[in-house]
């Protein structure tokens, strides 16, 4: 593609500025805690979190792998289900009318209450975690995918009909490709809540994972370690979001518009 990203001086300047701003925010946090603004047992200073990140690295890494697996599988399950459901809702107005309110209701479910019930029901394995993660993350994917499907220009559908295209071929050649950017948008929104979902699921019953580690560290008042787990969760969400952005740009170059990007 001719618009392949090249590191222009303007981009370098923006990157340097962004880095400086980030350092400034961390510096302000450090100063605030160091000058006695907050009890380190409530809000540890960045340097002590950094130290915990280093000294507890193997512990954090082990637990990160558990959570990462849950989140990735959970998003995968959510994406597959959400896509299938979007297509079903798109094709059948009856199903859409009946099921859409239920989808909204599913988002009103209080996860901290539902998660322990699922654990009681399905045990300590990965299954209840996948269900919780899929439950919190599939809704945004359905909404954006359905919007993309419904947003196909009606004139284009008419055109396909004058070409004698069957309903299925119209879907395959026009609607399906048009829905993919919506699928990506939904998945990008979903990654952050998927991480929260994983933590809630781990808090409700598990013996490993960053959420579990957070809970343990919190109980032992090892605040830097607890915050280190949070930092890793956040970084993971950012990395997933960035990875999806890059994947979208590579897979759907025609849909890429350089605005509102993280990566």
């Amino acid at each position: 593609m001719s618009r392949r990203a090249r590191t222009s001086p303007a981009k370098v300047r923006v990157a340097i500025g962004a880095l400086a701003l980030l350092l400034l925010l961390i510096g302000a946090w450090e100063l605030y805690v160091d000058l006695g603004g907050a009890d380190p047992l409530i809000l540890p200073a960045p340097h002590s979190i950094a130290k915990a990140l280093y000294t507890d690295r193997s512990l954090l890494w082990r637990n990160f792998l558990v959570t990462a697996q849950e989140v990735l599988l959970g998003i995968l399950v959510a994406t597959v289900l959400a896509f299938a459901l979007s297509v079903l809702l798109h094709f059948s107005p009856v199903v859409r009318r009946a099921v859409y309110p239920l989808l909204v209701a599913s988002q009103a479910l209080p996860i901290p209450i539902v998660a322990p019930v699922l654990v009681l029901w399905l045990g300590f394995g990965i299954l209840p975690k996948l269900i919780v993660i899929a439950l919190v993350s599939f809704f945004s994917i359905v909404v954006t995918t359905l919007a993309a499907l419904a947003g196909v220009d009606p004139a284009l559908l008419k055109l396909m009909r004058t070409f004698d295209a069957t309903r299925l071929r119209i879907f395959r050649h026009v609607e399906l490709p048009a829905a993919l950017p919506g699928l990506f948008t939904g998945a990008k929104i979903a990654v952050a809540v998927a991480v929260i979902g994983a933590v809630f699921a781990e808090l409700s019953g598990s013996s490993s994972g960053l959420g579990y580690l957070f809970q343990q560290a919190n109980a032992q008042i090892l605040m830097p370690r607890a915050y280190a787990a949070v930092v890793i969760l956040s970084a993971f969400a950012i990395a997933l979001f960035a990875a999806l952005t890059v994947a979208e740009r590579l897979l759907l170059p025609w849909a890429y518009q350089p605005r509102g990007d993280l990566a």
Partner: peptide, 14 residues
């Protein structure tokens, strides 16, 4: 049987 050429080109961007 007739085939339409719409006013806007409506090419598929992908």
């Amino acid at each position: 049987p007739a085939a339409l050429m719409p006013q806007r080109d409506l090419l598929l961007p992908w």
